[in-house]
Design a protein around this nucleic acid. Structure first.
Length: 591
DNA sequence: CACACAATGAGACTGCGC
DNA sequence: GCGCAGTCTCATTGTGTG
């Protein structure tokens, strides 16, 4: 295997072994999922099988997620001991659903119950109340605050955390708001390097341990709400921000930068994750992406704020957003400073100051010739219709003025410059010019991504282990390297051999001390391989990747089929693999 | 066979006038 | 608020050329 040729100590992993896995994959029927691509939910089969002998463990498992224990017990009784987590979850969901619909109609009436469950078990009306209500019937004399405190304690939070949250969020704050606050506070403390270790939260990721089930739960409820018309299709659609600056730019007035956000608790790491795709997708795509990635709101950024070319992209990540810093030196944001030689030839009637999105194809020589002839035909300024034709073509193909009446497309090394890669990053080794454009056109803008990833530097002073999916020409790896974050272990998955060669070549040229291991297909990276790799290297700190945009991009006139498209459907592989890594990381402790 | 070229024209958004 | 033209977009495909 190619990846074993690197002389590292990974050669002894036998990918073909049939050894029983601690992690196994259980495909969930699409009827349970909002993801038509068939996300695979990974469950711990070992734990499930041992659970027959200990129902209390399973009950504890669900109660830990905030479900009423009586419902869980009832569900297990109804569907039989030894049932899978998924079945139990479905049954509990049904109970909750029935409860919700009863309350909506204001008719909780046990006489109407035909489902076999005891509605007296239920008395909460919303998601805030999926806590253990065991004592509630005996606690009528407790104040609202005391009840909330009790609920939070049962969810595993300390009295101090709960009290602080209730104090800060006010007396009317719901349980959901309070748990959000506590999670945000945990992250903030974890990220504050100046806090003494003893007051930092321990690796308390209990909230993410059950993330996949919770995600499924939220998705299921979301679907049912939609079916009942409770949620308007458009009312919650993700809209693109204007201006497209994400949480703020390095050049912003510091006071205007967003410094806090509350992540859904199931989105918390480890690992950190960072997902990218084109911003301008068919409707609903970003809603789906966000939903599958734990309901984290995308951060939309146009790279024209980081270089002289536009690149509108959405990023979904669970990284901290405080204390970001940019790569130095900053790139110029206009064409004139980026390509000073063009200034002499730039006509006054071409008002462009920055380029459009760098794509995978360039303007042809014939087109350049047509433009030259069109402009040459006039002594002074050409008439309006000629100007319009020329400017339209220049915008469409990102052409620069490189001589008298002469336009030209960007050279590959100019692509590299604009995108933040080292010069000649994609040059040589048998790669054609066309392939260079294709690889570069599909890549990250390094400075933009590095700005987001910069927060990892103080967190991983001794280096980082990353799982890089759809690596392309290694935009994330280059960004981390340029940030000065040591790359201890990089597992890179990239279909194109040309791109894999580019990354390996870069790896060797930059004298990396760590290990680079590569795969060619995300679909073959199963739970066993991920588990083995994680075991070898001590876990993954970051899962990064931008899945194929072919079926999302506006340039595609043929098969812009959205996330169900032939290539773009691989997004669900990112979700699957991230879920697997989350599962592994929450089930074990890595040092 | 690799590469270059050009036709293709969907979908979302924006800005303008009414 | 509506209609419309204008703008932009990590592309695909078939054909031509050397």
């Amino acid at each position: 295997m190619e990846s074993n040729a690197s002389g590292d100590d990974f050669g002894d992993i036998d990918w073909n072994t049939e050894d029983e896995l601690e992690i196994s994959e259980i495909p969930i029927s699409t009827s349970n999922l909002p993801t038509p691509g068939g996300v695979t939910i990974v469950c711990n089969g070992e734990e499930s099988s041992s659970a027959h002998s200990s129902n209390s463990k399973l009950i504890q498992h669900f109660v830990g997620m905030g479900f009423p224990d009586k419902l869980v017990v009832k569900a297990i009784e109804e569907i039989g001991e030894g049932s899978s987590e998924g079945k139990i979850l479905d049954t509990v969901l049904t109970y909750l659903e029935l409860q919700n619909s009863s309350e909506e109609h204001g008719c909780i009436d046990s006489d109407q119950s035909t489902s076999g469950y005891d509605e007296s078990l239920l008395h909460d009306s919303d998601i805030d109340s999926w806590s253990d209500d065991d004592d509630e019937e005996n606690s009528d004399d407790l104040s609202e605050s005391e009840k909330k405190l009790q609920t939070l304690q049962k969810m595993g939070y300390s009295v101090d955390e709960a009290t602080e949250a209730m104090h800060r969020c006010g007396p009317d704050a719901s349980i959901a708001v309070l748990t959000d606050f506590i999670c945000a506070a945990q992250i903030a403390r974890a990220e504050a390097p100046d806090l003494p270790a003893e007051i930092k939260p321990k690796a308390n990721y209990t909230c993410s341990q059950n993330g996949k089930l919770k995600r499924r739960l939220y998705a299921e409820l979301d679907n049912r709400k939609k079916q009942r018309g409770m949620v308007g299709e458009d009312s919650e659609m993700i809209r693109l921000p204007k201006p497209m600056v994400g949480f703020g730019l390095p050049t912003d007035d510091q006071s205007s930068i967003v410094r806090e956000r509350t992540l859904p608790e199931q989105a918390l790491g480890p690992p950190y994750f960072y997902y990218e795709n084109v911003a301008l997708t068919p409707k609903g795509v970003w809603d789906e992406i966000s939903k599958c990635l734990y309901y984290v709101e995308p951060e939309f950024v146009d790279s024209k704020y980081f270089c002289a070319a536009a690149r509108k992209r959405g990023y979904v990540h669970n990284l901290p957003i405080q204390k970001r810093f940019p790569l130095r030196p900053l790139l110029p944001l206009n064409i004139e400073e980026t390509f000073p030689l063009t200034k002499r030839w730039w006509p006054s009637w071409d008002s462009r100051t920055y380029l459009n999105c760098l794509q995978t194809a360039i303007g042809s020589a014939k087109l350049q010739d047509r433009i030259r002839k069109a402009v040459e035909a006039y002594d002074g300024e050409p008439p309006e219709h000629v100007k319009k034709y020329v400017i339209d073509q220049c915008k469409k193909w990102n052409l620069l003025w490189v001589g008298r009446n002469k336009v030209a497309p960007l050279e590959p090394d100019e692509f590299e410059l604009l995108l933040g890669f080292p010069r000649n990053h994609t040059r040589g080794g048998g790669i054609s010019r066309t392939d260079r454009y294709k690889s570069l056109g599909n890549s990250f803008q390094v400075n933009t991504v590095a700005y987001h990833l910069s927060v990892l530097k103080p967190l991983f002073p001794d280096g980082i282990n990353i799982l890089s999916l759809f690596s392309g020409i290694g935009g994330a790896e280059v960004a981390l390297h340029r940030l000065g974050i040591p790359l201890n272990n990089v597992v890179s998955v990239e279909k194109s051999e040309i791109n894999r060669n580019i990354v390996r070549s870069w790896w060797e040229q930059t004298n990396q001390k760590g290990n680079l291991i590569d795969f060619d297909d995300v679909q073959t990276l199963d739970a066993y391989k991920i588990e083995s790799l994680a075991g070898k290297i001590g876990g993954f700190d970051l899962v990064v990747g931008g899945s194929p945009c072919n079926n999302l991009a506006g340039s595609n006139r043929v098969s812009r089929d959205g996330l169900e498209g032939k290539e773009s459907i691989l997004f669900y592989e990112y979700v699957r693999i991230l879920d697997t890594v989350k599962n592994i990381m929450s089930g074990r402790r890595f040092n």
